[in-house]
Design a protein around this nucleic acid. Structure first.
Lengths: 221, 221
DNA sequence: CTCTGAATGTAACAAGGTCACCGACGCGGG
DNA sequence: CCCGCGTCGGTGACCTTGTTACATTCAGAG
């Protein structure tokens, strides 16, 4: 069966007592999902908890008028807990998760999830810590949207998305979706950044030519 | 000891098996908190889960620059679950809960909370349902702040705050805090509402003189 | 009655979002 | 190779919201 080595990737699970660990490994399975797959969303209730081994899931919300905003990303070593609680809610709402890359994940059936909660305080801690993390993400989004300036938010997101590298392949529209704003706003802001020598643009492609300056812009708040 | 009648107020707990119910009642206690008390917040980690019997708790977030926005309210019959997970998080952030009225609540110590989670699937469901509810609240806030227009948001909030009655005692500043905007914006908007005959104002006091019209405004989105 | 702090009014401006439209680019079919 | 079409990005006018900086009004304390 599954080797269970993956457990090491989850700091909260590493110290699970052996019997619990065995149960978790035996009764979950590793799945692969290809990039672009709609993992959960309105009208699509997953009855598995996913632990991401590889890849990222982008969780976003779409308003009635079709406007979209990215809420957070689930990265390797993290879990999709919010979906658990959310989809337990009667109300319908518009959060959805999309595989941003090809994904490898551990799928824990609802029944196993429930059982682990009863038998392991470590597992409970893991779950609640995961919740805490997502909730603080949401708090951050609210703070940013309500009170943040877009130049800062954009700079931040550019740095974030670029990761190690200093260039990235995104359209203005995609960046607008990240921040829940309009494409024109991003275009204007990027034009300004370019004029200031912070970035270089070409169609569908942005180079962070002065990342330190972008970071200063972010911190200067 | 405590009579335990209060359990009937919580739909999710009504069907607890008798032994669990007894444990919950015996090991929690009813407390009273007076209006205005700061119940939890940065640097103030409660180790009790509160179930509200009476009154409301306003949960809000304050940005670095002192701007504030109301995230949601905990009403009688609901619980403060988010604080559980949140304050378990290492990171500090600025959500805080304030008693908006005098409050009566059941206080469940952390250890009991934990134990109930292990022994009762009904209690687990209760907790996760409570989480789900709050998370959808947060989603709503994000949607409103990112994409909503303030006239609609204000109308909505006025109706909400008025409740049964059709008048309410709030300042423009308080309303601004509700929506995470500036006082001037509220003043402008209320002046407009007044000109349109939707409300009447006097210092610290607003009368919804045409509530149906306000409701139409909200729905017309 | 006066002083004072809170509440509200207002005007001018900045920032961000919306609308309408354009041109530029890239790709696949003819 | 050229054409057509769909995506991407640029731009200006305009509207809404947020900011700044005051002035004014009011209610209660003293």
């Amino acid at each position: 069966m599954a080797s269970g080595d993956w457990i090491e990737q989850f700091s909260g699970l590493a110290r699970l007592p052996d019997p619990v660990r065995t149960k978790l490994v035996d009764r979950s399975r590793v799945i692969n999902v290809s990039a672009g797959t709609h993992i959960f969303g309105p009208g699509n209730i997953p009855d598995n908890l996913l632990l991401l081994l590889d890849g990222t899931v982008r969780v976003s919300q779409t308003s009635e008028k079709g406007r979209e905003i990215v809420l957070y990303r689930v990265e390797a070593g993290q879990s999709c807990v919010l979906t658990t609680a959310c989809l337990l809610a009667h109300e319908a709402y518009a959060a959805e998760g999309v595989a941003e890359t090809d994904i490898k994940a551990v799928s824990i059936p609802r029944a196993v999830f429930d059982e682990l909660l009863t038998v392991s305080s470590q597992f409970r801690d893991f779950v609640f810590a995961a919740y805490a993390r997502r909730i603080t993400d949401l708090f951050r989004v609210i703070d940013d949207v309500a009170f943040g300036k877009i130049d800062v938010r954009l700079a931040e997101r550019l740095i974030d998305l670029a990761g190690e590298s200093n260039d990235l392949k995104v359209t203005h529209q995609q960046l607008a979706t990240e921040l829940g704003t309009a494409r024109e706003v991003i275009s204007r802001q990027l034009a300004d950044f370019q004029k200031r020598g912070l970035v270089q643009q070409s169609r569908g492609h942005i180079v962070l030519s002065d990342q330190p300056a972008l970071e200063r812009l972010v911190d200067a708040v």
